[in-house]
Design a protein around this nucleic acid. Structure first.
Length: 502
RNA sequence: GACCCCGUAGCUCAGGCGGUAGAGCAUUUGACUUUUAAUCAAAGGGUCGCGCGUUCGAGUCGCGCCGGGGUCACCA
């Protein structure tokens, strides 16, 4: 991308020098900002305008309308925009310099608040200070409010590549982007509050791990020079949080970054934020109730409503959520009873359903394919899919009454997986067998199968109480609650291929 | 990884039938002391993503590469 200075950028560097020559301190050290623009707009009272007679506001110039010996600016701070009125008579020494101000410059304005003829609350400047010059031309976005009160945006900054690579510009120019990330922050802090009130402990466990586990995925590999060993960036926090349950904590959670060295698309970024929660003495039924409470309350907290619009589809997060056993869903949407079927029978059924499967696919793989092709699309409204086949879930406890199944649920919303939870497997003998089975699959060439973690097995032998565990993909939850359909729109700095210098 | 679409001025986009590049905003100059997509007048600004080829001539056609978006696959 162009790092060169264009005509307009050159002019800005020139203006900086002209301002400096005019005796202006172009990079001062601070500014006495007394009010936010939002506060002023909310609290200005025409009857008592003297209350906001001495204000200091600061922000970035977003619009300029010069009219000879008077000018109107808009400046934007974190909370919003406010109009500034500058008049030559009131700024005798500075007014000439206002010609050297550009859209994007950061200024501080001291003055009094009034309402213009056309009714807009405005700061009448008594003193204007340059706080930082914007030396790079920003996209110019113009806005109009129509009679219905709708915001019409002209020439919005729309180039996705530049918006992601220069998120700071995106944030300056596209106010909705800022709102998305404010909402993201609110979602995460609400979840913390919700868990903290339950008395559970937020913990930090290693990101650099000698053995990675807790999920099936390929890791990022790195090296620790001090010990000359290979380390992996974590793909999940599961096994460490369970060790803490063994250690005697009864409720622990972690909200943190996981790293998976796999494909990137609309719902996958190589690093993503995961929430995991483990609570002792509980099972997955209890966890289902909790998940429902958490998701619905979070929606209400940040959106003021259980309803979410996604791609024009209306989704209701009002509890209770639908609960359906996995094999009942298969029966409902394919017409076939798949429970207890052999691998070859499943293969035949998949063919009849026109689901593409590899000739040598395992029965798990076939079930997964059929689920993805025939069932997921029906799970628009929140649905707990319950009781998965054992082979798909090496860390989940065997079902108390159903042979071949585990006590596991996944929450689907809008056809996407949002949460995954089990009654955690705490029998070390069973866990050992399952991990050894994973190791066999791995040896047979599946790079994503799990690695045996001997210390984790040792911890189970020390004894883990019955425990319920939950994982929620925070990025996907944020997507759901903001209506964004790309994970890149809910991650501030999404992974991008580096630009090549030409 | 496969396929489809896109890449033209700082931004948003037009041109695409091959003849040497256009609009709006932004910028510069001038006018304007309550404007608000301010207005009016004039001017400047482009290796048309990069490279190779076809052609008298390529932004336009072909091939390759780079970057982005989307669909699928892989994956949770």
């Amino acid at each position: 991308m162009a790092e060169q200075l264009n005509e307009q950028d050159l002019r800005r560097f020139e203006e900086l020098e002209l301002l400096e020559k005019a005796g202006i301190e172009v990079y001062p050290y601070s500014f006495n900002k007394t009010h936010s623009t939002k506060f002023i707009l909310k609290n200005f009272n025409d009857e008592k305008s003297e209350e906001l007679f001495n204000v200091g506001v600061a922000g970035r110039i977003s619009a300029i309308r010069r009219m000879g010996k008077a000018s109107f600016f808009h400046i934007a701070d974190e909370t919003g925009k406010i109009q500034i009125y500058m008049k030559k008579d009131d700024l005798p020494d500075f007014y000439e310099n206002t010609k050297l101000l550009d859209i994007g410059d950061i200024i501080g304005v001291e003055g009094f608040t009034f309402r213009t003829k056309t009714g807009e609350i405005t700061i009448h400047a008594r003193k204007v200070s340059l706080l930082a010059k914007c030396l790079r031309t920003l996209p110019v976005v113009k806005e109009e409010i129509d009679e219905q009160g709708n915001r019409i945006v002209y020439d919005a900054f729309a180039d996705k590549e530049l918006r992601y690579r220069r998120r700071y510009v995106d944030l300056i120019v596209n106010p909705d982007v800022k709102n998305t990330f404010i909402k993201r922050s609110k979602i995460i802090s609400y979840i913390r509050k919700f868990f903290d009130e339950k008395g559970w402990l937020e913990v930090d466990t290693p990101i650099l791990q000698t053995i990675y586990g807790g999920a099936t995925a390929r890791p990022f590999i790195t090296h620790l020079n001090a010990l000359d060993i290979t380390l992996y960036l974590r793909i999940a926090v599961e096994l460490y949080l369970k060790r803490l349950i063994v250690g005697g904590f009864e409720g622990v959670y972690e909200i943190g970054r996981n790293f998976r060295n796999e494909g990137m698309d609309r719902t996958h970024n190589p690093e993503f934020t995961m929430l995991e929660l483990y609570v002792a003495y509980k099972d997955y039924n209890w966890m289902m109730d909790l998940t429902e409470e958490l998701i619905s309350k979070t929606a209400l907290e940040v959106n003021g409503s259980y309803e979410v619009e996604f791609d024009g589809k209306l989704i209701s997060l009002k509890p209770p959520f639908r609960r359906a056993k996995m094999f009942d869903l298969f029966k409902q949407y394919t017409g076939y009873e798949l429970k207890g079927k052999s691998r070859d029978e499943l293969f035949e059924i998949a063919k009849k359903l026109n689901v593409d499967v590899d000739d040598n696919a395992s029965s798990m793989k076939i079930l997964d394919e059929i689920f993805g092709a025939k069932v997921e699309e029906h799970l628009l409204q929140p649905t707990f899919v319950i009781d998965y086949p054992l082979e798909m879930s090496p860390l989940a406890k065997k079902h108390r009454s159903e042979e071949g199944l585990v006590e596991r649920f996944e929450l689907f919303v809008n056809g996407n997986e949002l949460a995954n939870a089990f009654s955690e497997l705490n029998d070390p003998r069973d866990q050992q067998q399952r991990l050894e089975e994973q190791a066999r699959i791995r040896a047979a060439g599946d790079e994503e199968a799990m690695v045996v973690d001997e210390d984790f097995l040792y911890s189970l032998e020390v004894g883990m109480p019955p425990t319920a565990g939950l994982g929620i993909g925070i990025d996907r939850l944020v997507m759901l609650l903001t209506g964004e359909s790309s994970i890149r729109d809910v991650i501030l700095f999404p992974m991008m291929r580096p630009e090549k210098n030409k």
